[in-house]
Design a protein around this nucleic acid. Sequence first.
DNA 1: ATGTAGCACTCTAGAATGTCAAGTGCCACA
DNA 2: TGTGGCACTTGACATTCTAGAGTGCTACAT
Lengths: 141, 141
Amino acid sequence: MSAETGAWCPVYSSIELFQEKWVLHIVRALLGGPHGFNELSRAVGGANTTTLSQRLEHLERLGIVDKTVESTMPPRTRYELTHAGRELEGIIAAIDSWARAHMRRCQEHGASGVAFGPEERVPHGEPGAWDDHGAQRERDA
Amino acid sequence: MSAETGAWCPVYSSIELFQEKWVLHIVRALLGGPHGFNELSRAVGGANTTTLSQRLEHLERLGIVDKTVESTMPPRTRYELTHAGRELEGIIAAIDSWARAHMRRCQEHGASGVAFGPEERVPHGEPGAWDDHGAQRERDA
DNA sequence: ATGTAGCACTCTAGAATGTCAAGTGCCACA
DNA sequence: TGTGGCACTTGACATTCTAGAGTGCTACAT
């Protein structure tokens, strides 16, 4: 719509971007350093590879992530944040502090059957993936 | 997965929430004051009513928005942010500042055909809706 | 030399999610 | 009496995401 009315709103567009599935997860994972493709898929909580490669392609086109293919055999790919990407840390940090303050409460009174209970899909967890996140997050705790 | 591994991560869950379609748009609109249902649908950029009522119900259960029905006839509904909801302003502000710094650039070199050009869907814009947003955004400019 | 495993993907089909369009019941104003 | 607004719900349809398998390559163990 932005494009149509001529009044293009950067904030609206960013929100559209961040509400694409996995985008924020990808940024969060990449904030902890560069990752390979499969590694990223795991770090992000088990995103399937089809979606992941679409997202990465999109983020690369927008200049948020940078893809490097080392010309060894077999070629290794490395995804990392660009300057613009790294600046997203402010958003992740804001989410982080809000989550710590308010999300825990949601979980607690979730005992009454609401709040994330009914519709939270559980993708089949990789226990190891969480260690990654945990370690990365200590940074700003 | 969080639920499954026992290591529940509030940040992961928040990201899951914010990447639900319209959630961030709803919060942004509501930051500018309470809205009625149809009004909100317009303010948010033309969200369809089915999805909107689902989202609002979810946000209400999580204690982020508060729904008040005035017992007049016909009943008027008013959606507004709770305390926790208002605290999301930090996140919106972070998105806002990132967007102003980096998104405009994306648009500019979008002249080369990339960056939001190809796959941005245009839902059929209501020209008026943008005045709303514009007005609200002046607050933190 | 063969088996197993990892990397970085792509492909296809089906499930989940979101959307459109229409309809409901209510009232206000002309 | 008619047109329009409000706050939704319903059902059919479209888009998006996912699982799971497959590709081509290497590396390491047996």
